[in-house]
Design a protein around this nucleic acid. Structure first.
Length: 294
DNA sequence: ACTGCATTTCCTGCTT
DNA sequence: TAAGCAGGAAATGCAG
């Protein structure tokens, strides 16, 4: 098999020059802050298709939803069209997420824009006050909407429904949401019946999510064989730095990250791919990477 | 305080 | 020679 390394876009996170306009303006948008785009400064009526996608991506990011929960292809429309959509249209286009998205558009249409507040009413993790004097890294705000681990419960559509129902519940009852925030912060895993819950995303989930949302971090990791779960690191050090940023560890390297990856072989989260550098394969204990995972 | 988990760090040796 | 891989060993941070 011929590897396609020579075709890889050379994306340097620190460089502003780029041979082609990137699909997303900030290759590392997941870490660069939640509101790097421009859509929130413009009335939704005037959004371009791109800004509509930014808005959707923001929704996914802020609520820590799986990207598969939102059918992006159904929103290949500009802001004018978006604003003209009825609730039924949204439900048709986005299913379980339709109601929330519709409400958010209505809110944006009639109440203007609130910068980083735009999605707060949807998000379980709302930073209402900062009692900890230590600086909070952007990724610290990254908390899942519910307490189940991807390890055990990543279950495609059901997963999305669960996430979205939590998001919806919070959307319709902000006061309740804020109290839940407090609870979640004080007792983040109290209600869980799981044996153990993650402190955050596991490394393999982080890798999987990059693969599933390449538009967020283009050119970092790529599928080699999507159906078999084989993937390849294109920018190993960049991925390691991104992982380090997520873990608030700026000394992370690919060498260390790869050691953690190798531990997954024993747990059958990954399978060895012999003789191919930077190539890994999801194992039987990795969930959520398949196209029709249900 | 203790324990288990999931890394993180460091290392040596090997392969590409 | 550099980069990556394999895996042992110990350390670390967090949550229960």
């Amino acid at each position: 098999m011929i590897l396609q390394g020579s075709n890889i876009m050379n994306i340097n996170p620190s460089a502003s020059s780029h041979p082609h306009p990137p699909i997303w303006p900030t290759p590392y948008s997941a870490c660069d802050g939640f509101f790097a785009g421009q859509w929130h400064d413009i009335h939704p009526q005037y959004w371009t298709k791109f800004q509509v996608w930014e808005w959707l991506q923001q929704f996914v990011d802020t609520n820590q939803l799986d990207a598969n929960c939102i059918p992006f292809q159904e929103f290949d429309i500009n802001g004018e069209r978006l604003c003209s959509m009825s609730l039924q249209d949204f439900n048709q286009a986005a299913g379980a997420a339709g109601h929330i998205l519709y409400s958010n558009v209505q809110h944006l249409k009639w109440h203007g824009h609130y910068g980083s507040q735009v999605f707060q009413s949807l998000n379980v993790v709302i930073k209402t006050e900062q009692t900890d004097p230590s600086p909070i890294a952007p990724w610290k705000e990254d908390t899942f909407l519910f307490e189940n681990s991807y390890d055990d419960v990543y279950d495609g559509k059901a997963f999305c429904r669960t996430q979205l129902s939590v998001a919806a519940a919070n959307h319709y009852n902000t006061a309740y949401a804020e109290s839940e925030v407090k609870k979640a912060q004080d007792h983040p895993q109290k209600a869980s019946t799981k044996k153990h819950t993650p402190r955050g995303t596991h490394l393999w989930e982080f890798i999987r999510d990059i693969l599933l949302t390449p538009e967020k971090n283009p050119g970092l990791i790529r599928w080699e064989d999507r159906s078999e779960g084989v993937f390849r690191f294109l920018k190993s050090e960049a991925v390691a730095q991104l992982w380090g940023k997520k873990k608030n560890n700026n000394s992370m390297t690919y060498e260390k990250l790869s050691r953690a990856m190798r531990y997954y072989y024993k747990r059958e989260i990954l399978e060895r791919v012999d003789g191919r550098r930077l190539v890994y394969k999801f194992g039987k204990n990795a969930r959520g990477w398949k196209e029709n995972d249900s």
